[in-house]
Design a protein around this nucleic acid. Sequence first.
DNA 1: AAGTGGTCTAGACCACACC
DNA 2: GTGTGGTCTAGACCACTTC
Lengths: 231, 231
Amino acid sequence: MPDVQTWKTVQHELLRRLRERIWQPGQLIPSEQVLAEELGCSRATVNRALRGLAEGGLFDRRRKAGTRVAMIPVRKANLNIDIIRLDVEKRGAVYRWALIEQQRTFPTERIRSRLEVDHDMEMLYLRGLHLADEHPFIYEERWINLAVVPGILETDLNSISPNEWLVRHIPLPSGEIVFSAANTDATEASLLETEEGAAVFVIERRTWKGHQGITIVRMVHEPGFRMRTTI
Amino acid sequence: MPDVQTWKTVQHELLRRLRERIWQPGQLIPSEQVLAEELGCSRATVNRALRGLAEGGLFDRRRKAGTRVAMIPVRKANLNIDIIRLDVEKRGAVYRWALIEQQRTFPTERIRSRLEVDHDMEMLYLRGLHLADEHPFIYEERWINLAVVPGILETDLNSISPNEWLVRHIPLPSGEIVFSAANTDATEASLLETEEGAAVFVIERRTWKGHQGITIVRMVHEPGFRMRTTI
DNA sequence: AAGTGGTCTAGACCACACC
DNA sequence: GTGTGGTCTAGACCACTTC
Protein backbone atom coordinates (compact mmCIF):
# COMPACT_ATOMS: atom_id res chain seq x y z
CA MET A 1 0.00 0.00 0.00
CA PRO A 2 1.50 3.40 -0.92
CA ASP A 3 1.91 5.78 2.00
CA VAL A 4 -0.08 8.48 0.21
CA GLN A 5 -3.48 7.47 -1.09
CA THR A 6 -4.97 9.35 -3.97
CA TRP A 7 -8.44 8.61 -5.26
CA LYS A 8 -6.85 6.95 -8.28
CA THR A 9 -4.76 4.54 -6.25
CA VAL A 10 -7.85 3.74 -4.22
CA GLN A 11 -9.76 3.15 -7.44
CA HIS A 12 -7.06 0.82 -8.71
CA GLU A 13 -7.25 -1.15 -5.48
CA LEU A 14 -11.03 -1.45 -5.80
CA LEU A 15 -10.68 -2.57 -9.42
CA ARG A 16 -8.11 -5.15 -8.36
CA ARG A 17 -10.58 -6.61 -5.92
CA LEU A 18 -13.15 -6.84 -8.70
CA ARG A 19 -10.74 -8.39 -11.21
CA GLU A 20 -9.45 -10.94 -8.76
CA ARG A 21 -12.95 -11.84 -7.65
CA ILE A 22 -12.18 -10.89 -4.06
CA TRP A 23 -15.55 -9.19 -4.29
CA GLN A 24 -18.03 -11.34 -6.19
CA PRO A 25 -20.83 -10.04 -8.39
CA GLY A 26 -23.81 -9.17 -6.24
CA GLN A 27 -21.76 -9.01 -3.08
CA LEU A 28 -22.11 -6.20 -0.56
CA ILE A 29 -18.80 -4.46 -0.06
CA PRO A 30 -17.70 -2.60 3.09
CA SER A 31 -19.00 0.90 3.70
CA GLU A 32 -17.04 3.98 2.75
CA GLN A 33 -16.25 4.52 6.41
CA VAL A 34 -14.72 1.06 6.79
CA LEU A 35 -12.83 1.23 3.51
CA ALA A 36 -11.41 4.62 4.43
CA GLU A 37 -9.99 3.23 7.66
CA GLU A 38 -8.73 0.09 5.99
CA LEU A 39 -7.03 1.96 3.16
CA GLY A 40 -5.77 4.75 5.33
CA CYS A 41 -7.47 7.68 3.68
CA SER A 42 -10.45 9.91 4.23
CA ARG A 43 -14.02 8.95 3.41
CA ALA A 44 -14.16 11.61 0.71
CA THR A 45 -11.34 9.93 -1.16
CA VAL A 46 -13.07 6.56 -1.07
CA ASN A 47 -16.26 8.25 -2.18
CA ARG A 48 -14.54 9.84 -5.14
CA ALA A 49 -13.15 6.47 -6.24
CA LEU A 50 -16.39 4.56 -5.75
CA ARG A 51 -18.54 7.21 -7.38
CA GLY A 52 -16.62 6.96 -10.63
CA LEU A 53 -16.88 3.19 -10.72
CA ALA A 54 -20.59 3.29 -9.89
CA GLU A 55 -21.14 5.74 -12.76
CA GLY A 56 -19.31 3.29 -14.97
CA GLY A 57 -21.84 0.63 -14.03
CA LEU A 58 -19.51 -1.52 -11.92
CA PHE A 59 -21.23 -0.96 -8.59
CA ASP A 60 -24.79 -0.31 -7.50
CA ARG A 61 -24.99 2.13 -4.64
CA ARG A 62 -27.97 2.92 -2.47
CA ARG A 63 -28.16 4.82 0.76
CA LYS A 64 -28.48 2.63 3.76
CA ALA A 65 -28.43 -0.47 1.56
CA GLY A 66 -24.75 0.03 0.83
CA THR A 67 -22.61 -0.70 -2.22
CA ARG A 68 -22.91 -3.92 -4.20
CA VAL A 69 -20.83 -5.28 -7.06
CA ALA A 70 -23.06 -5.10 -10.12
CA MET A 71 -24.39 -8.50 -11.19
CA ILE A 72 -23.98 -7.69 -14.86
CA PRO A 73 -21.69 -4.77 -15.44
CA VAL A 74 -23.10 -2.44 -18.06
CA ARG A 75 -20.11 -1.13 -19.89
CA LYS A 76 -20.30 2.44 -21.06
CA ALA A 77 -18.65 3.46 -24.27
CA ASN A 78 -17.91 7.11 -24.92
CA LEU A 79 -18.23 8.58 -28.37
CA ASN A 80 -16.77 11.97 -29.06
CA ILE A 81 -19.02 13.81 -31.45
CA ASP A 82 -16.71 16.20 -33.22
CA ILE A 83 -17.55 18.59 -35.96
CA ILE A 84 -16.84 16.84 -39.23
CA ARG A 85 -14.03 19.16 -40.26
CA LEU A 86 -11.99 18.19 -37.22
CA ASP A 87 -12.80 14.54 -37.80
CA VAL A 88 -11.39 14.75 -41.30
CA GLU A 89 -8.37 16.77 -40.27
CA LYS A 90 -7.58 14.21 -37.54
CA ARG A 91 -7.29 11.64 -40.29
CA GLY A 92 -4.69 13.84 -41.88
CA ALA A 93 -6.84 14.86 -44.82
CA VAL A 94 -7.83 18.24 -46.20
CA TYR A 95 -11.43 19.13 -45.48
CA ARG A 96 -13.84 20.83 -47.86
CA TRP A 97 -17.56 21.45 -47.67
CA ALA A 98 -19.53 21.58 -50.92
CA LEU A 99 -23.06 22.95 -50.83
CA ILE A 100 -25.31 21.27 -53.38
CA GLU A 101 -28.68 22.79 -52.73
CA GLN A 102 -30.16 25.43 -50.45
CA GLN A 103 -33.76 26.60 -50.35
CA ARG A 104 -36.46 27.96 -48.08
CA THR A 105 -39.39 25.64 -48.18
CA PHE A 106 -42.09 23.95 -46.14
CA PRO A 107 -41.07 20.76 -44.42
CA THR A 108 -42.69 17.40 -44.79
CA GLU A 109 -45.10 16.27 -42.11
CA ARG A 110 -42.49 13.90 -40.74
CA ILE A 111 -39.86 16.60 -40.30
CA ARG A 112 -42.42 18.98 -38.82
CA SER A 113 -43.55 16.55 -36.17
CA ARG A 114 -40.06 15.49 -35.26
CA LEU A 115 -38.93 19.08 -34.68
CA GLU A 116 -42.27 20.36 -33.39
CA VAL A 117 -42.40 23.16 -35.89
CA ASP A 118 -45.63 24.99 -36.85
CA HIS A 119 -47.06 23.94 -40.21
CA ASP A 120 -47.09 27.48 -41.61
CA MET A 121 -43.42 27.93 -40.92
CA GLU A 122 -40.83 27.87 -43.68
CA MET A 123 -37.61 26.06 -42.97
CA LEU A 124 -34.19 25.94 -44.58
CA TYR A 125 -33.47 22.80 -46.57
CA LEU A 126 -29.85 21.97 -47.40
CA ARG A 127 -27.91 19.28 -49.13
CA GLY A 128 -24.18 19.05 -49.38
CA LEU A 129 -21.01 17.01 -49.32
CA HIS A 130 -18.20 16.85 -46.83
CA LEU A 131 -15.01 16.02 -48.70
CA ALA A 132 -11.75 14.60 -47.43
CA ASP A 133 -8.88 15.23 -49.84
CA GLU A 134 -11.55 15.93 -52.47
CA HIS A 135 -13.10 12.49 -52.00
CA PRO A 136 -16.71 12.37 -50.85
CA PHE A 137 -16.79 11.51 -47.16
CA ILE A 138 -20.29 12.35 -45.97
CA TYR A 139 -23.40 13.36 -47.84
CA GLU A 140 -25.79 15.34 -45.68
CA GLU A 141 -29.37 16.39 -45.99
CA ARG A 142 -30.60 18.87 -43.42
CA TRP A 143 -33.58 20.89 -42.25
CA ILE A 144 -33.07 23.97 -40.11
CA ASN A 145 -35.74 25.77 -38.11
CA LEU A 146 -35.53 29.44 -39.11
CA ALA A 147 -37.58 30.49 -36.11
CA VAL A 148 -34.68 29.56 -33.88
CA VAL A 149 -31.72 30.60 -36.02
CA PRO A 150 -32.81 33.33 -38.45
CA GLY A 151 -29.21 34.52 -38.57
CA ILE A 152 -28.19 31.60 -40.74
CA LEU A 153 -29.88 33.24 -43.75
CA GLU A 154 -27.22 35.93 -43.75
CA THR A 155 -24.49 33.35 -43.85
CA ASP A 156 -22.77 32.08 -46.96
CA LEU A 157 -23.19 28.36 -46.51
CA ASN A 158 -20.76 27.70 -49.33
CA SER A 159 -17.85 28.69 -47.15
CA ILE A 160 -18.84 27.15 -43.84
CA SER A 161 -20.78 23.96 -43.29
CA PRO A 162 -24.14 24.32 -41.55
CA ASN A 163 -22.83 21.81 -39.04
CA GLU A 164 -20.03 24.10 -38.02
CA TRP A 165 -22.10 27.28 -38.16
CA LEU A 166 -24.69 25.80 -35.83
CA VAL A 167 -22.12 24.50 -33.37
CA ARG A 168 -20.60 27.94 -33.16
CA HIS A 169 -23.88 29.83 -32.85
CA ILE A 170 -26.14 27.61 -30.77
CA PRO A 171 -24.65 26.90 -27.42
CA LEU A 172 -25.57 23.65 -25.72
CA PRO A 173 -28.50 22.19 -27.55
CA SER A 174 -29.95 18.88 -26.44
CA GLY A 175 -29.83 16.18 -29.04
CA GLU A 176 -30.60 12.69 -30.17
CA ILE A 177 -28.34 10.59 -32.35
CA VAL A 178 -29.40 7.48 -34.21
CA PHE A 179 -26.92 5.18 -35.95
CA SER A 180 -28.05 2.77 -38.64
CA ALA A 181 -27.09 1.09 -41.89
CA ALA A 182 -28.77 1.65 -45.23
CA ASN A 183 -28.47 0.77 -48.89
CA THR A 184 -27.67 3.84 -50.97
CA ASP A 185 -30.24 5.09 -53.43
CA ALA A 186 -29.22 6.35 -56.87
CA THR A 187 -28.61 9.93 -55.75
CA GLU A 188 -26.51 9.00 -52.75
CA ALA A 189 -24.55 6.42 -54.72
CA SER A 190 -23.68 8.94 -57.40
CA LEU A 191 -22.63 11.62 -54.93
CA LEU A 192 -20.57 9.19 -52.88
CA GLU A 193 -19.06 7.69 -56.02
CA THR A 194 -20.19 4.18 -55.30
CA GLU A 195 -22.74 1.73 -56.63
CA GLU A 196 -26.41 1.94 -55.89
CA GLY A 197 -27.28 -0.41 -53.04
CA ALA A 198 -23.89 -0.17 -51.36
CA ALA A 199 -24.17 -0.40 -47.59
CA VAL A 200 -23.51 2.91 -45.88
CA PHE A 201 -23.28 4.02 -42.30
CA VAL A 202 -25.96 6.60 -41.52
CA ILE A 203 -26.10 9.01 -38.60
CA GLU A 204 -29.29 10.93 -37.98
CA ARG A 205 -29.00 13.80 -35.58
CA ARG A 206 -31.79 15.90 -34.15
CA THR A 207 -31.13 18.84 -31.86
CA TRP A 208 -33.40 21.13 -29.94
CA LYS A 209 -33.24 23.84 -27.33
CA GLY A 210 -35.91 23.87 -24.72
CA HIS A 211 -38.98 22.78 -26.67
CA GLN A 212 -37.91 24.21 -30.01
CA GLY A 213 -36.43 21.94 -32.62
CA ILE A 214 -33.34 23.41 -34.25
CA THR A 215 -32.18 21.03 -36.92
CA ILE A 216 -32.49 17.49 -38.16
CA VAL A 217 -29.83 16.00 -40.37
CA ARG A 218 -29.17 12.71 -42.09
CA MET A 219 -25.48 12.05 -42.69
CA VAL A 220 -24.66 9.29 -45.12
CA HIS A 221 -21.05 8.15 -44.78
CA GLU A 222 -18.75 6.82 -47.45
CA PRO A 223 -18.81 3.05 -47.89
CA GLY A 224 -16.31 1.42 -45.55
CA PHE A 225 -16.69 4.05 -42.87
CA ARG A 226 -15.96 2.78 -39.36
CA MET A 227 -16.76 4.40 -36.05
CA ARG A 228 -14.43 3.24 -33.32
CA THR A 229 -14.38 3.49 -29.56
CA THR A 230 -12.87 1.76 -26.57
CA ILE A 231 -14.29 0.57 -23.30
CA MET B 1 -29.69 32.74 -6.00
CA PRO B 2 -30.87 29.95 -3.71
CA ASP B 3 -29.70 30.24 -0.14
CA VAL B 4 -28.20 26.72 -0.24
CA GLN B 5 -25.84 25.97 -3.07
CA THR B 6 -25.39 22.42 -4.19
CA TRP B 7 -22.96 21.49 -6.93
CA LYS B 8 -25.92 20.92 -9.21
CA THR B 9 -27.35 24.38 -8.73
CA VAL B 10 -23.88 25.79 -9.31
CA GLN B 11 -23.61 23.72 -12.47
CA HIS B 12 -26.96 25.02 -13.70
CA GLU B 13 -25.80 28.55 -13.13
CA LEU B 14 -22.60 27.90 -15.09
CA LEU B 15 -24.60 26.34 -17.91
CA ARG B 16 -26.91 29.35 -17.93
CA ARG B 17 -23.94 31.63 -18.44
CA LEU B 18 -22.84 29.49 -21.37
CA ARG B 19 -26.27 29.31 -22.96
CA GLU B 20 -26.87 33.02 -22.62
CA ARG B 21 -23.42 33.82 -23.99
CA ILE B 22 -22.49 35.68 -20.81
CA TRP B 23 -19.28 33.72 -21.23
CA GLN B 24 -18.19 33.56 -24.86
CA PRO B 25 -16.39 30.67 -26.50
CA GLY B 26 -12.68 30.98 -25.81
CA GLN B 27 -13.19 33.35 -22.93
CA LEU B 28 -11.36 32.95 -19.63
CA ILE B 29 -13.81 32.61 -16.78
CA PRO B 30 -13.16 33.58 -13.15
CA SER B 31 -11.12 31.26 -10.96
CA GLU B 32 -12.75 28.71 -8.66
CA GLN B 33 -11.84 30.94 -5.74
CA VAL B 34 -13.66 33.94 -7.18
CA LEU B 35 -16.68 31.93 -8.30
CA ALA B 36 -16.98 30.36 -4.86
CA GLU B 37 -17.13 33.77 -3.23
CA GLU B 38 -19.51 35.12 -5.85
CA LEU B 39 -21.89 32.17 -5.62
CA GLY B 40 -21.63 31.84 -1.88
CA CYS B 41 -20.27 28.35 -1.63
CA SER B 42 -16.99 26.60 -1.04
CA ARG B 43 -14.32 26.14 -3.66
CA ALA B 44 -14.83 22.37 -3.59
CA THR B 45 -18.42 22.79 -4.72
CA VAL B 46 -17.42 24.99 -7.64
CA ASN B 47 -14.73 22.47 -8.51
CA ARG B 48 -17.22 19.62 -8.55
CA ALA B 49 -19.51 21.56 -10.89
CA LEU B 50 -16.74 22.70 -13.22
CA ARG B 51 -15.04 19.33 -13.34
CA GLY B 52 -18.15 17.65 -14.69
CA LEU B 53 -18.60 20.27 -17.39
CA ALA B 54 -14.93 20.09 -18.36
CA GLU B 55 -15.18 16.30 -18.69
CA GLY B 56 -18.16 16.90 -20.96
CA GLY B 57 -15.97 19.02 -23.21
CA LEU B 58 -17.54 22.39 -22.40
CA PHE B 59 -14.54 23.93 -20.68
CA ASP B 60 -10.80 23.60 -21.04
CA ARG B 61 -9.03 23.72 -17.72
CA ARG B 62 -5.32 24.08 -17.13
CA ARG B 63 -3.45 24.79 -13.96
CA LYS B 64 -2.29 28.34 -13.74
CA ALA B 65 -3.81 29.16 -17.12
CA GLY B 66 -7.31 28.93 -15.69
CA THR B 67 -10.62 27.80 -17.16
CA ARG B 68 -11.75 28.72 -20.67
CA VAL B 69 -15.00 28.15 -22.48
CA ALA B 70 -14.23 25.57 -25.16
CA MET B 71 -14.08 27.07 -28.66
CA ILE B 72 -15.76 24.06 -30.20
CA PRO B 73 -17.51 21.97 -27.65
CA VAL B 74 -16.88 18.28 -28.30
CA ARG B 75 -20.11 16.60 -27.37
CA LYS B 76 -19.79 13.22 -25.74
CA ALA B 77 -22.39 10.60 -26.36
CA ASN B 78 -22.68 7.70 -23.99
CA LEU B 79 -23.53 4.26 -25.22
CA ASN B 80 -24.56 1.60 -22.77
CA ILE B 81 -23.20 -1.71 -23.90
CA ASP B 82 -25.60 -4.25 -22.45
CA ILE B 83 -25.54 -7.96 -22.88
CA ILE B 84 -27.79 -8.75 -25.79
CA ARG B 85 -30.33 -10.66 -23.74
CA LEU B 86 -31.11 -7.55 -21.69
CA ASP B 87 -31.24 -5.46 -24.83
CA VAL B 88 -33.88 -7.73 -26.28
CA GLU B 89 -35.85 -7.97 -23.06
CA LYS B 90 -35.89 -4.18 -22.77
CA ARG B 91 -37.70 -4.13 -26.10
CA GLY B 92 -40.32 -6.34 -24.54
CA ALA B 93 -39.39 -9.41 -26.53
CA VAL B 94 -38.48 -12.93 -25.51
CA TYR B 95 -34.81 -13.72 -25.96
CA ARG B 96 -33.31 -16.92 -27.24
CA TRP B 97 -29.79 -17.89 -28.22
CA ALA B 98 -29.30 -20.51 -30.91
CA LEU B 99 -25.87 -22.03 -31.40
CA ILE B 100 -25.18 -22.91 -35.02
CA GLU B 101 -21.62 -24.15 -34.96
CA GLN B 102 -18.92 -24.75 -32.39
CA GLN B 103 -15.45 -26.14 -33.00
CA ARG B 104 -11.89 -26.05 -31.79
CA THR B 105 -9.67 -24.94 -34.59
CA PHE B 106 -6.72 -22.84 -35.57
CA PRO B 107 -7.47 -19.19 -36.23
CA THR B 108 -6.74 -17.28 -39.38
CA GLU B 109 -3.68 -15.09 -39.48
CA ARG B 110 -5.87 -12.00 -39.16
CA ILE B 111 -7.58 -13.22 -36.00
CA ARG B 112 -4.31 -14.36 -34.52
CA SER B 113 -2.61 -11.04 -34.98
CA ARG B 114 -5.56 -9.05 -33.71
CA LEU B 115 -5.71 -11.04 -30.48
CA GLU B 116 -1.98 -11.66 -30.20
CA VAL B 117 -2.39 -15.41 -29.90
CA ASP B 118 0.40 -17.93 -30.57
CA HIS B 119 0.17 -19.67 -33.93
CA ASP B 120 0.23 -23.17 -32.44
CA MET B 121 -2.74 -22.43 -30.19
CA GLU B 122 -6.19 -23.76 -30.92
CA MET B 123 -9.11 -21.43 -30.37
CA LEU B 124 -12.85 -21.85 -30.05
CA TYR B 125 -14.82 -20.81 -33.10
CA LEU B 126 -18.54 -20.14 -32.71
CA ARG B 127 -21.44 -19.05 -34.82
CA GLY B 128 -24.95 -18.43 -33.58
CA LEU B 129 -28.11 -16.39 -33.64
CA HIS B 130 -29.65 -14.11 -31.05
CA LEU B 131 -33.41 -14.24 -31.48
CA ALA B 132 -36.07 -11.80 -30.31
CA ASP B 133 -39.52 -13.40 -30.22
CA GLU B 134 -38.07 -16.12 -32.46
CA HIS B 135 -37.07 -13.62 -35.12
CA PRO B 136 -33.38 -13.34 -35.95
CA PHE B 137 -31.94 -10.27 -34.28
CA ILE B 138 -28.19 -10.66 -34.40
CA TYR B 139 -25.97 -13.18 -36.14
CA GLU B 140 -22.62 -13.53 -34.46
CA GLU B 141 -19.34 -15.12 -35.40
CA ARG B 142 -16.80 -15.37 -32.62
CA TRP B 143 -13.30 -16.55 -31.77
CA ILE B 144 -12.37 -17.24 -28.15
CA ASN B 145 -8.86 -17.63 -26.81
CA LEU B 146 -8.83 -20.92 -24.88
CA ALA B 147 -5.58 -20.01 -23.17
CA VAL B 148 -7.45 -17.34 -21.22
CA VAL B 149 -10.79 -19.02 -20.62
CA PRO B 150 -10.36 -22.80 -20.76
CA GLY B 151 -13.44 -23.14 -18.57
CA ILE B 152 -15.71 -22.34 -21.46
CA LEU B 153 -15.12 -25.81 -22.90
CA GLU B 154 -17.06 -27.33 -20.01
CA THR B 155 -20.00 -25.05 -20.69
CA ASP B 156 -23.03 -25.96 -22.77
CA LEU B 157 -23.09 -23.02 -25.15
CA ASN B 158 -26.53 -24.04 -26.35
CA SER B 159 -28.10 -22.80 -23.13
CA ILE B 160 -26.11 -19.63 -22.53
CA SER B 161 -24.69 -17.29 -25.14
CA PRO B 162 -20.91 -16.92 -25.18
CA ASN B 163 -21.49 -13.20 -24.79
CA GLU B 164 -23.21 -13.69 -21.45
CA TRP B 165 -20.88 -16.44 -20.28
CA LEU B 166 -17.85 -14.23 -20.89
CA VAL B 167 -19.37 -11.22 -19.17
CA ARG B 168 -20.07 -13.31 -16.11
CA HIS B 169 -16.69 -15.00 -15.98
CA ILE B 170 -14.21 -12.38 -17.14
CA PRO B 171 -14.36 -9.35 -14.92
CA LEU B 172 -13.40 -6.04 -16.45
CA PRO B 173 -11.70 -6.72 -19.74
CA SER B 174 -10.51 -3.85 -21.88
CA GLY B 175 -12.11 -3.62 -25.24
CA GLU B 176 -12.46 -2.01 -28.61
CA ILE B 177 -15.73 -1.58 -30.45
CA VAL B 178 -16.06 -0.77 -34.13
CA PHE B 179 -19.36 0.13 -35.74
CA SER B 180 -19.86 -0.13 -39.48
CA ALA B 181 -22.31 -0.96 -42.22
CA ALA B 182 -22.06 -3.90 -44.60
CA ASN B 183 -23.96 -5.69 -47.32
CA THR B 184 -25.03 -9.15 -46.22
CA ASP B 185 -23.50 -12.16 -47.95
CA ALA B 186 -25.60 -15.20 -48.83
CA THR B 187 -25.09 -16.92 -45.47
CA GLU B 188 -25.90 -13.87 -43.40
CA ALA B 189 -28.92 -13.02 -45.53
CA SER B 190 -30.34 -16.47 -45.16
CA LEU B 191 -29.84 -16.55 -41.41
CA LEU B 192 -31.26 -13.08 -40.92
CA GLU B 193 -34.16 -13.86 -43.25
CA THR B 194 -33.44 -11.04 -45.62
CA GLU B 195 -32.11 -10.61 -49.14
CA GLU B 196 -28.47 -10.89 -50.05
CA GLY B 197 -26.92 -7.44 -50.21
CA ALA B 198 -29.25 -5.89 -47.62
CA ALA B 199 -27.49 -3.24 -45.57
CA VAL B 200 -26.84 -4.35 -42.03
CA PHE B 201 -25.40 -2.70 -38.97
CA VAL B 202 -22.25 -4.48 -37.83
CA ILE B 203 -20.55 -4.28 -34.46
CA GLU B 204 -17.10 -5.77 -34.08
CA ARG B 205 -15.90 -6.18 -30.55
CA ARG B 206 -12.48 -7.21 -29.40
CA THR B 207 -11.62 -7.66 -25.73
CA TRP B 208 -8.45 -8.41 -23.92
CA LYS B 209 -7.08 -8.57 -20.42
CA GLY B 210 -3.62 -7.29 -19.88
CA HIS B 211 -1.82 -8.33 -23.06
CA GLN B 212 -3.89 -11.43 -23.73
CA GLY B 213 -6.67 -11.30 -26.28
CA ILE B 214 -9.84 -12.93 -25.01
CA THR B 215 -12.37 -12.81 -27.81
CA ILE B 216 -13.19 -11.17 -31.09
CA VAL B 217 -16.72 -11.12 -32.36
CA ARG B 218 -18.58 -9.81 -35.38
CA MET B 219 -22.24 -9.10 -34.68
CA VAL B 220 -24.44 -8.61 -37.72
CA HIS B 221 -27.73 -6.98 -36.81
CA GLU B 222 -31.11 -7.42 -38.42
CA PRO B 223 -31.85 -5.00 -41.26
CA GLY B 224 -33.44 -1.82 -39.92
CA PHE B 225 -31.56 -1.98 -36.63
CA ARG B 226 -31.02 1.42 -35.04
CA MET B 227 -28.70 2.35 -32.21
CA ARG B 228 -29.86 5.43 -30.39
CA THR B 229 -28.33 7.77 -27.85
CA THR B 230 -28.80 11.29 -26.55
CA ILE B 231 -26.35 14.08 -25.89
C1' DA C 1 -34.36 3.93 14.71
C1' DA C 2 -30.17 3.57 12.61
C1' DG C 3 -26.80 3.01 9.04
C1' DT C 4 -25.54 4.24 4.50
C1' DG C 5 -24.19 7.16 0.72
C1' DG C 6 -24.49 12.24 -0.93
C1' DT C 7 -22.85 16.40 -0.18
C1' DC C 8 -20.89 20.83 1.76
C1' DT C 9 -17.26 23.29 4.33
C1' DA C 10 -12.83 25.21 5.56
C1' DG C 11 -8.38 24.58 5.32
C1' DA C 12 -4.29 22.79 3.42
C1' DC C 13 -0.62 21.22 0.28
C1' DC C 14 0.95 20.32 -4.18
C1' DA C 15 1.80 20.14 -9.41
C1' DC C 16 1.89 22.62 -13.06
C1' DA C 17 2.41 26.25 -16.30
C1' DC C 18 3.00 30.83 -17.18
C1' DC C 19 5.69 34.73 -15.98
C1' DG D 1 7.93 33.53 -8.35
C1' DT D 2 3.02 33.11 -8.47
C1' DG D 3 -1.61 31.90 -9.44
C1' DT D 4 -4.27 28.27 -10.99
C1' DG D 5 -6.60 23.86 -10.76
C1' DG D 6 -6.18 19.00 -8.49
C1' DT D 7 -6.63 16.77 -4.54
C1' DC D 8 -6.75 15.26 0.45
C1' DT D 9 -8.49 15.82 5.19
C1' DA D 10 -11.61 16.04 9.07
C1' DG D 11 -15.82 17.09 10.36
C1' DA D 12 -20.55 17.83 9.68
C1' DC D 13 -25.41 17.51 8.24
C1' DC D 14 -28.80 15.45 5.49
C1' DA D 15 -31.68 12.13 2.56
C1' DC D 16 -32.87 7.97 1.86
C1' DT D 17 -34.02 3.25 2.88
C1' DT D 18 -33.99 -0.64 5.21
C1' DC D 19 -34.81 -2.60 9.70
